[in-house]
Write a protein that binds this DNA or RNA. Sequence first.
DNA 1: CCGACTATTGCGAATGGTTCGCAATTATGC
DNA 2: GCATAATTGCGAACCATTCGCAATAGTCGG
Lengths: 124, 124
Amino acid sequence: MEKLKERLARAGHKLTGPRWAVWQKLIAAKQPFSAQALYQQIKGVNRASVYRALHLLEELDLVNVEVIGQEKHYCLAAPAHHHIICRNCGYLEKVECTHDLGRFPHFSQVSHQLTLTGLCPKCR
Amino acid sequence: MEKLKERLARAGHKLTGPRWAVWQKLIAAKQPFSAQALYQQIKGVNRASVYRALHLLEELDLVNVEVIGQEKHYCLAAPAHHHIICRNCGYLEKVECTHDLGRFPHFSQVSHQLTLTGLCPKCR
DNA sequence: CCGACTATTGCGAATGGTTCGCAATTATGC
DNA sequence: GCATAATTGCGAACCATTCGCAATAGTCGG
């Protein structure tokens, strides 16, 4: 909790109820969730606030974004990882990250998003 | 042209005007374009048909999808490559692909999408 | 602890990219 | 050519996301 509060304060933001609620949901999540899904799971927080919280967390590199189907999905950024998703049934596994972002010397503050898709054992 | 026609036929699809038009635009494109942008550049083809063509080409692994901002952008799948995009000004560079998709033996037909973002030399 | 100053929220409507349903059209194999 | 199935065009519908603004809530100095 202090970690989040400090990180927000450092960037000139406050730790508020909606932000905390979103953060908690993401910590509990075992897989990426869409903004919609998060909104439905969090009672008492407005839809727009969920989106705003997610955008902020993304900006601070606290969450990762992954596009699954037409929707953006969100999950904690740490530990660095990606997902491999079954195109047929949506089954999803974590994949450890092995990228070397130092390869791009002329860009600074490089971050990345990798999504793998395929057919899982059941659907192959 | 034959290449595209054969590929479509193999999957039980026809080579039609709209599909050809979209394909040509993508070949000419030096960078990924959104469906909207492609639609605006292609006269005489309905919006829905552009979307349908893109979905089909994506399904056949002939084009790659990249999410930039809120929109999906499309570009030719070959040669395999990715992009690094400036978060501030949108400047974009190609990055050669160095992924080994054989790492996932339990999934079949694995494909992937990597997007790098950072601050370009001008914006850093 | 109090007030003031900002950041933030909630709300409901608007936005805008994408998809749908269906009749009319077109490519393909025989 | 013809039959047949795939595909298109159209315009409305969808639905995730964003906007504008008044009301609210953190935070910081005193």
